[in-house]
Simulated scan of single mutants.
Amino acid sequence: MELIQSPELPAPAGHYSQAVAAGGLVFLSGILPAAGAVDPATAGFEAQCGSVFEQCEKVLCAAGCGFADVVQCTAYIVGVENWPAFNALYANVFGTHKPARAVVPVPGLHYGFMVEVQLVAQRPGA
């Protein structure tokens, strides 16, 4: 198992890795909006999603991947009413690429954020 850490992001505060690679796959831990850059009390759902996808892109890049390599996504969103907005933002990020996906409405997330995304990607050439 290879630990993946983006040099552009702070190291995780807990006992986990930003991502790990194993068997040609890269597994991203749940990614929240950028702490310090996004205030959950004032940033809207769309801004939080934008931050999450930027964070994910940095971790994917550190693993030698991009969004086109993602094979599975699990998204946790606060409020089922945010599903259409998430779907539109997600479609904008992934374009015609359509990985397997689950969107799970939840009552709350860590630090008061409204979205968390977990990805699995296949390394190119693996």
Rank of each mutant, 00 (worst) to 15 (best):
E46H: 08
P12Y: 03
V38E: 07
V59Q: 04
F45V: 00
S51C: 02
E54V: 11
Q5K: 15
Q72D: 14
A37Y: 03
A47G: 04
Q55I: 05
A63Y: 00
A62R: 09
A35D: 13
T74P: 06
T42I: 02
A11W: 15
G44S: 01
G64F: 10
G66D: 08
Q5D: 08
A35F: 11
P33Y: 01
Q5E: 11
V26I: 14
A13Y: 09
V70R: 04
P40C: 08
Q5R: 15
G36H: 07
E46S: 09
V59I: 14
P7R: 08
G44V: 04
V71D: 02
A68W: 13
E57R: 15
P7G: 06
E46M: 10
C49P: 02
L60C: 03
A35C: 06
E8T: 06
D69K: 00
V71P: 07
Q5T: 11
T42V: 00
L28Q: 10
A11N: 09
A62D: 07
A13T: 12
E8H: 15
T74E: 09
D69W: 12
V38K: 07
G44D: 12
V71N: 02
Q55M: 09
A43M: 08
Q18T: 04
L25S: 11
Q72P: 00
G36N: 03
A35W: 04
A63V: 05
Q72E: 14
G66V: 13
P40E: 07
V26W: 00
P33R: 03
F45K: 00
F53L: 01
D69R: 02
S29I: 02
A35E: 14
A11K: 15
